[in-house]
Design a protein around this nucleic acid. Structure first.
Length: 923
RNA sequence: GGGGGCUUAGCUCAGUUGGUUAGAGCGCAUCCUUGACAUGGAUGAGGUCGCAGAUUCGAAUUCUGUAGCUCCCACCA
């Protein structure tokens, strides 16, 4: 703050301090057993990704938590890192390769292609971590880890092998979600259902043996292109209409073949005609029916989404949606198509490939989830807590119905599954229980030349589910890592969006419970508590645009956070995004809504600038020296009041952090600093600053104290500007930074400041009086005049208060003078009734008495209503009996005030009417 | 079909265990460039808290019913 600029310019300040923090090693995590541990593992962003608004929110929140923890003297670890993001990264590189050289990955071969991916990772990887630094994230960057790092990979393979050995992982031929675009299997979680406007085709399958009048069965389908794979028609076994046909056959139109009519209770009699075509190779439910009835599996769609030879010559090589049209057309020409009806149904889409998935039978690796019961128990018992609490239901509900997880991906970029097959044996001949056939280990077989490794890699989530423990050295920690594991594990808090509770959060919990520690079937609560990956889960909402739409590149509604940092400063952006983040629901983003952050920084900057201009700086080097500069005997009412407010703020932030109630955080900081401190206290100070030196110094000491505490409280949200001002005002000890100064707890602060409650009460009354005084002026277009003459009438004790605060009132309300006046003389002046006094505005010029009287009459009606409500309440015996004393006292006070105001207003109206009458008679 | 969540000022949202006259920011209107800040100051307009019942001395807050919106899970061709 060497040059005093009028507006805060964040860029230089932020870059300078961030660089200095880094070089001073401020974010280094040190496991210090004398301190309380605090650890957060960053949800690893995609290594080749770019920062988006979701990251900004997620990481700002984490940074707030860890910075606050440092101020509380805890030993903090914020572990950064990135995720290899299998499908996303691989497809990106494939696309680039195709565009630049026209080659596919198969042209290059596995090894050469992977080299390309590593090159890409090297080139673009880590950019996102640099972007996080721009945001001010205080991670221990030296620890940055990557899910494909050597050690991390070892952990991933160890997990696989242990799960395999314990019987949780198996290989099986199953119906899986197949993405024809990326040509890999996906887990159920990677498939999103989307409503589609499709067509329901009604068609007929001719009976081979006509049944009296009946010559055919009518069947509805949305997918006529699969009919070539039909191997039966199913009806409900108890359906009287068709029961007797079970066992007979119908003609599949093409390729023309007799297929059986079977009875299966899966069929819904109510739906359509109650007949279902069964395509076991291309539908999950049909597959199960096929299993039950030993039906033929006829695959007609290939892995690439194109029809194969089985579909018949006419269709082979045709893309699946084109084939749909052609199949319908063909049915039509054959006279078998009864109708096309518009139909809305849900279709599963590949999250990554953005195309409809194809249910497809294939050999895959599956994980039977371990420790499901313990994972539920952990959350039910409160060993792990969700904030907000309601997400625990979502979590528990998901665990109730989970099915085995398909963990293999037909990709190259990822952890290759550590399974080797003996060469020379056909896959179908393999006996997985025979170690001579199948080898499973981390290191691989001793005679690799005789083995062939599984070509699939693991789902990315089947590596990131070890994130907290693997980053700290699991499974084979060295002594240093062991110390850290003992200290920081389980980690304190996980901060993430609700969209990955299933993908990541739940899987981390289950994996940790199974793997962290010895193999154990059933876990005690104590054992659960030791194994958990984290104790608290803070769930925040997703960022959407101002219309509530998801942010996406194609919509162009996803702003670049770096542009926003440029515009508003990192601190401004952080403050702004927190300020609009409600607790746990979606966040509607717009630039307009985060301007508040930049404005607030500017306000803070200028308030401090004003402090520097107001008088000499004194010893600010620690709280004790500022306290020494205070002279309680010189305290006036606003002094007590602002100190009380400061204690209140400190207290409310304490409980906010305690309960993870961080949504109100920015509101509290903002209201305190802007309204209480700047609008009232600093304005009130201005008179004192020009009074005696003693008064001035005392006032400056209070300002220094308030600003100091405020900077500390605001620091987690706005780290850079608070550091800048902290140093500028001399709060820092040499070579130290703001986060190293311990935060004074509210209790301590209250004890050393002892704000006077009656003074606090008086200030509240004065504020009302001043506000009403200003309003009175505004009514007569005198708002900005500062030389208005005002009189007051008040009860004796209130009069004392008014006299004491004369200068304050005049300055804040813009009065030239405000003096006591005989009520009789005052009559005829416009007035306003406040709890402390009635104010009269001296208008030397003419005045619209009728208008004034009308205004007061409106007030009177309101007051009458208040009085009657109060009287009714206090006259109610039951209320007097059952309401707490505090509430009754409050009601009494309120009624008394309302009565007084009412009577005063009545009196004023009468005097106006008299005056107006006398004026009329004069004229 | 199952389970969440939401409905309060023009907009986005607060409103802690029921208890003084329901708040904030933005927007809007009027006034003000006074020696921290126009990224500012002052004042004001604007709400029967989705609807209907119930409990209570007292309900935005609790309960029941109901309407609308929204998200997640499952999914019938």
């Amino acid at each position: 703050m060497s040059e005093i600029s009028k507006a805060y310019e964040p860029e230089a300040v932020e870059n300078r301090w961030y660089a200095e923090w880094l070089s001073a090693g401020c974010f280094k995590a040190v496991a210090d057993p004398k301190r309380q541990p605090y650890a957060i593992m960053i949800p690893p962003p995609n290594v080749t990704g770019r920062l988006h608004m979701g990251h900004v929110l997620d990481n700002t929140l984490q940074d707030i938590f860890v910075r606050r923890a440092r101020q509380e003297g805890k030993a903090v670890l914020w572990q950064p890192g990135t995720d290899h993001a299998g499908i996303a990264t691989q497809t990106k590189v494939e696309k680039q390769l195709l565009e630049s050289t026209g080659q596919s990955k198969h042209d290059l071969g596995r090894e050469a292609f992977l080299e390309k991916v590593w090159d890409f990772k090297q080139a673009s990887g880590g950019v996102i971590l640099q972007q996080l630094q721009k945001l001010g994230a205080s991670c221990d960057w030296d620890r940055a880890s990557f899910t494909l790092d050597e050690d991390y990979s070892k952990a991933v393979l160890t997990a696989f092998v242990r799960f395999y050995q314990r019987g949780y992982i198996y290989r099986g031929k199953r119906m899986v979600n197949w993405c024809p675009a990326t040509q890999t299997a996906l887990s159920d979680e990677e498939v999103t259902m989307r409503a589609q406007n499709g067509i329901l085709y009604k068609m007929r399958y001719e009976l081979v043996e006509p049944d009296g009048e009946r010559t055919h069965l009518e069947i509805s389908t949305t997918r006529p292109e699969t009919l070539m794979g039909d191997s039966a028609v199913a009806v409900h076994p108890e359906d009287a209409r068709y029961q007797h046909l079970i066992g007979q056959t119908v003609w599949r139109p093409f390729p023309r073949e007799e297929i059986p009519i079977i009875g299966d209770s899966y069929v819904d009699r109510e739906f359509g005609t109650g007949c279902l075509k069964v395509t076991p190779a291309h539908d999950k439910n049909d597959f199960e029916i096929g299993q039950r009835h030993d039906l033929k599996l006829i695959e007609v769609i290939g892995a690439d989404g194109y029809m194969n030879e089985q579909a018949g010559e006419e269709f082979a090589g045709v893309e699946r949606f084109e084939a749909r049209k052609r199949a319908a057309k063909k049915l039509e020409t054959m006279g078998l198509l009864v109708a096309r009806e518009a139909y809305e149904n849900n279709v599963g889409y590949s999250e990554r490939g953005h195309v409809p998935i194809e249910p497809r039978l294939s050999e895959q690796w599956f994980l039977k989830y371990p420790k499901v019961a313990a994972a539920k128990r952990a959350v039910e018992s409160g060993a792990i807590r969700f904030y907000p609490d309601r997400w625990k239901k979502t979590y528990l509900h998901w665990l109730d119905g989970i099915q085995d997880w398909c963990i293999s991906r037909q990709l190259w970029w990822g952890h290759r599954i550590p399974v080797w097959y003996k060469k020379g044996l056909a896959r179908s001949e393999l006996d997985f229980d025979n170690p001579k056939h199948v080898h499973v280990s981390i290191e691989g077989p001793n005679d690799p030349e005789n083995w062939e490794q599984e070509s699939d890699v693991l789902d990315t989530w089947a590596s990131s589910y070890l994130w907290p423990m693997a980053n700290l050295g699991w499974p084979h920690p060295n002594p240093e890592q062991q110390k850290e594991l003992d200290f920081w594990y389980p980690t304190t808090t996980l901060v993430t969006g609700f969209d990955i509770i299933f993908f990541w959060v739940a899987r981390m919990i289950m994996a940790s419970l199974e793997l962290y520690g010895e193999d154990q079937e059933v876990l005690s609560d104590a054992e659960i508590a030791k194994r958990l990956p984290f104790k608290n889960i803070f769930i925040h909402g997703l960022i959407r645009d101002e219309k509530g739409r998801k942010m996406s590149k194609s919509l162009g509604n996803s702003p670049d956070p770096l542009d926003l940092i440029q515009k508003f400063g990192a601190d401004g952006l952080r403050f702004g995004i927190c300020n609009i983040a409600p607790s746990g629901s979606d966040i509607l983003f717009s630039e307009e809504r985060i301007q508040i952050g930049r404005n607030f920084c500017n306000k803070l900057w200028n308030a401090v600038r004003f402090r520097q201009m107001s008088g000499p700086m004194s010893d600010n080097s620690d709280l004790a020296s500022i306290l020494q500069r205070l002279d309680r005997t010189l305290f006036d009412d606003p002094d007590h009041w602002i100190l009380q407010r400061l204690c209140d703020l400190t207290q409310s932030l304490e409980s906010g952090f305690q309960d993870y109630e961080i949504a109100p955080l920015t509101h509290r900081l903002y209201a305190f600093f802007w309204s209480d401190f700047c609008d009232w206290y600093v304005e009130a100070s201005k008179a004192k600053l020009q009074a005696s030196e003693a008064l001035r110094d005392n006032c400056l000491a209070i300002q220094d104290l308030v600003i100091r505490q405020f900077l500390q409280l605001a620091h987690p949200v706005m780290p850079h500007i608070t550091e800048e001002l902290w140093q500028a005002l001399g709060y820092a000890q040499p070579q130290t930074y703001i986060h190293q100064a311990l935060l004074s707890p509210a209790q301590e602060l209250i004890q050393s400041l002892r704000p006077d409650a009656s003074a606090v009460e008086r200030v509240a009354q004065l504020q009302t009086l001043i506000t009403q005084g200003r309003a009175l002026k505004a009514q007569y277009r005198l708002a900005s005049k500062r030389d208005v003459v005002v009189y007051y009438t008040a009860e004796a004790p209130d009069q004392v208060t008014l006299e004491h605060n004369q200068a304050l009132i005049n300055r804040l309300a813009g009065f030239k003078s405000c003096t006591a006046l005989d009520p009789k003389v005052a009559s005829g002046m416009p007035a306003t009734v406040t709890p402390l006094a009635t104010l009269y505005l001296d208008l030397s010029s003419s005045l619209d008495l009728a208008a004034e009287s009308a205004r007061l009459t409106k007030d009177l009606a309101k007051l009458e209503q208040q009085v009657s409500i109060g009287e009714k309440k206090l006259g109610n015996e039951k209320f007097m009996k059952s309401a707490p004393e505090k509430v009754v006292a409050g009601a009494r006070k309120q009624l008394a005030e309302a009565r007084a105001k009412r009577d005063e207003t009545k009196r004023l109206i009468e005097s106006f009417q008299q005056n107006s009458a006398s004026l009329k008679s004069e004229s």
